[in-house]
Design a binder for these strands. Structure first.
Lengths: 364, 364
DNA sequence: GTGAAAGCGCTAACAA
DNA sequence: TTGTTAGCGCTTTCAC
């Protein structure tokens, strides 16, 4: 590549000083038309591209918002960084899982950046949530959004002393970081209530992991609704990461062996619900005929599934937008305390709870 | 925000020079362990985050790959940059259209960046493909990927004199830019052949716009197969942008009024095919009973649709990966000529052509 | 193995 | 309205 022309080159060709060139780009209307004209033509002729590095260094701002995540897509396919591993046959992918949770949130972040005149810098962790990777992107942006459980809190705290950091979908924020979340508890309570009141179910088991704040809140919603209805709680252990399908299958087998199939499985995520529906189908158990299954998230996957999945839809795009919005606001006018927002969710009644398919909630 | 600590601060605290600090980060093993230790502890204690701007300025590389697109998602919803327009009710979105074509390609770019140790910088055009927006991101990256018809060619040419530029999904590359594409012609020929040979159809109309190289190639594939079978060509005008549904409806109405319904509609994109299927359904015409409809792209939307859409699957993630890969290779070792790659496509036989649903190509 | 010093290209006072 | 002059924080020779 040819050496990139600089302000000096442009200034020389236009017969002005570098400051004027810089000024012409930032405050075009404050420059005499003839001067501006000359500068612009010089820039055009030279193929001048301002260096963002130099700009950022001089101005102290980068104009970029960062989003750090975990390379979910690649990792799920066993792809390694720096390896030559090819993807499998893309045409045979399980399309049901797209877009992923993270994709939708990322889209929201991207939209808000676009709207507010920022660019988005996306980085994915290479190692096991390595700090080094994060530093690589944290040093390039004016604000940073991260997915929960991707980076240790102390690392985030350190970074947040320099630039605003927002955690996406962390319910309660005791870390002092900015955060956006959704009404996990309310949504799950409403869903559980539907099972109890509309379908008259009593033996309802909750499926979900311990130790994740958002999942715990979903459990609270379930528990609250059950207790309010005078029903006993019942929980199913969650699968170890990466073994969802196997685990669901063996859990279903245990239910059958013990003759203790619940009337409903209230799962903490769509992904889990889908895995259980697969396992139940494989065991010849009809959903929703013999057991109802519900999810949480509202991924497209639940829509494609037969029966379609009754779930709670999170406003994922809005989640991303809200996160980016907080960041950009903070960049413009750094606040004192942590900003947090909770977004509402929406119950999506479909087939897997025992309701009839409805045009409005079926393919749309 | 507190002032960010710099190499000087770290050097002072560690009792070394800034060069040593820099050296410690780039060549850790070439520094005496004690020194390295001291530098690392100072960096940690200070919460030091290297400035990418300064690094980029000094080294002449940014470590980022740019992807420039058109804010399709936001624009389709009527969202304006800098406006306060909120999104509509996200729960009521037409999920069928996700992920979009661009989402999948972007994922591929992101994956490859991750794999090769780059970060991804995403920018969307604010105005009508404004050069200013592009310059904003072109100046921040070591290589740039763009979607076709997003930016005027001469602008791209100018940028490509400084950094490698790859066009994603441009079939023939007469511009001298790097490019990746898929076998549009072959895929469409195969699909048309299926309609003719397996289903015995003869009156097959092609639906698609003029003036887009990839669509033209698809037309060539269709035309070649028809001519080879001794069948007459028939084309349907394409809809003006943003009026797909209306246009499809009125086209169908014309077919009906004239009593000239084709036996098949071979559409140049899935989106178009889906719009025609909606219009046909509204007109009470059975697909595939009375008319076959096919698409091109292989979006999830076609899978969710009933009947599921027979189409040609493009390896979109691979397309993105290939594009990013070319860029990163070029950054490492700038080549002389333009690098181009064509990826194979895959025929996805589903229901809308008249075939039976098959487990393997249905929900997966 | 480590330090000194010279930029990288731009912005932001401040002068003129 | 335009020019001068300092840096911004880091990498990179080149000495030591």
């Amino acid at each position: 590549m040819a050496k990139r022309p600089t302000v000096y080159d442009v200034a020389a060709r236009a017969g002005v000083s570098i400051a004027t060139v810089s000024f012409t780009f930032s405050q075009p209307h404050k420059v005499r038309p003839a001067t501006r004209e000359a500068v612009e033509e010089a820039a055009r002729a030279l193929g001048y591209l301002p260096s963002a590095s130099a700009r950022g260094l001089a101005s102290g701002k980068t104009g970029a918002i960062g989003l750090f995540s975990f390379a979910y897509y690649a990792r799920e396919r066993g792809l390694q960084p720096d390896s030559q591993t090819p993807f499998g046959d893309e045409a045979n992918e399980d399309f049901r899982m797209f877009p992923l949770y993270h994709d939708e949130v990322q889209r929201g972040v991207q939209v808000e950046c676009w709207r507010r005149g920022y660019v988005l810098m996306v980085g994915d962790a290479k190692g096991a949530a390595g700090e080094a990777d994060l530093a690589g992107i944290a040093g390039r942006v004016d604000g940073l959004a991260v997915f929960p459980n991707t980076v240790p809190d102390d690392v985030l705290m350190r970074i947040s002393r320099r630039i605003p950091v927002v955690e996406l979908s962390i319910p309660i924020n005791n870390t002092g970081l900015h955060g956006v979340s959704v009404d996990n508890e309310g949504g799950m309570a409403e869903l559980t209530g539907h099972l109890v009141e509309v379908h008259g179910l009593r033996d309802i088991a909750f499926v979900g992991p311990k130790g994740f704040p958002d999942k715990e809140h979903r459990f609270s919603g379930y528990a609250g609704a059950m207790v309010a209805a005078g029903l006993p709680l019942r929980t199913v252990d969650t699968a170890p990461i990466g073994h969802l399908a196997d685990f669901a299958a063996s859990t279903v087998a245990e239910f059958v062996a013990a003759g203790k199939l619940p009337q409903a499985l209230v799962c903490s995520t769509d992904e889990e619900a889908l895995a259980y529906m697969d396992a139940l189908a494989a065991a010849g158990i009809d959903v929703p005929g013999q057991i109802a299954v519900t999810g949480f998230d509202g991924l497209v996957a639940g829509l494609v599934n037969r029966p379609s999945l009754t779930t709670v839809r999170q406003p994922l795009v809005e989640l991303g937008r809200a996160g980016a919005s907080i960041l950009i606001d903070q960049v413009a006018k750094p606040g004192k305390g942590a900003v947090t927002r909770q977004l509402p969710v929406k119950l999506m009644i479909r087939e897997s709870c025992g309701c009839q398919a409805q045009p409005g909630n079926q393919v749309r």
